[in-house]
């Protein structure tokens, strides 16, 4: 007998109710039960960060949280960033700075950066940004475009607080 639970959660403002097996990770649940395939799985042991999402506004590795734990929570995924076809400032900065190539790690970096940028003390200092972005792995870009994009947005979102 599978251990299953009926849960409800909000993803990017959409309410969902579903039955999920206890062991199903939040990443698999988002991807394969709810169709939010923008959240990618790159290692399933919490190192690469491709599955980073916001769970009640906190950045988490969706491979290290079980879907059942998200019962009653608010989840934000990459699909929630753009306004229709209009990219968010962060997404646009990633494109302008060539912060993505194959695109597989990109959703995780975007959500990581969203969390970083939402912190009051997030700075546009490249070293701090580099340290925060070191949470995730990218194999294509050498990180430069990613770091530049996040610095750009930190400057534009926190014009006073930037260092």
């Amino acid at each position: 007998m599978k251990d299953v639970h009926l849960i409800s959660l909000s993803v990017n403002g959409n309410e969902h109710e579903l039955v999920v097996e206890s062991r199903r990770t939040l990443a698999d649940m988002l991807r394969h039960d709810l169709g939010y395939t923008g959240t990618h799985l790159g290692c399933e042991h919490g190192i690469c960060g491709a599955c980073t999402i916001l769970l009640d506004d906190q950045p988490v590795r969706a491979c290290l949280v079980f879907g059942v734990q998200a019962d009653g929570c608010e989840v934000r995924t990459v699909e929630g960033l753009a306004d229709g076809d209009q990219l968010s400032d962060l997404q646009q900065a990633f494109s302008d700075r060539h912060g993505l190539q194959c695109g597989f790690c990109t959703p995780g970096f975007l959500m990581l950066a969203e969390a970083y940028l939402s912190e009051a003390d997030s700075s546009a200092d490249p070293e701090s940004v580099r340290e925060a972005m070191a949470s995730n792995l990218c194999r294509c870009t050498g990180y430069q475009g990613i770091v530049e994009a996040v610095c750009d947005v930190a400057r534009s979102r926190h014009p006073a607080g930037s260092t």
Partner: peptide, 8 residues
């Protein structure tokens, strides 16, 4: 760890 690890 890293920032998201520290958050959780």
């Amino acid at each position: 760890g890293h920032y998201p690890i520290r958050c959780r």
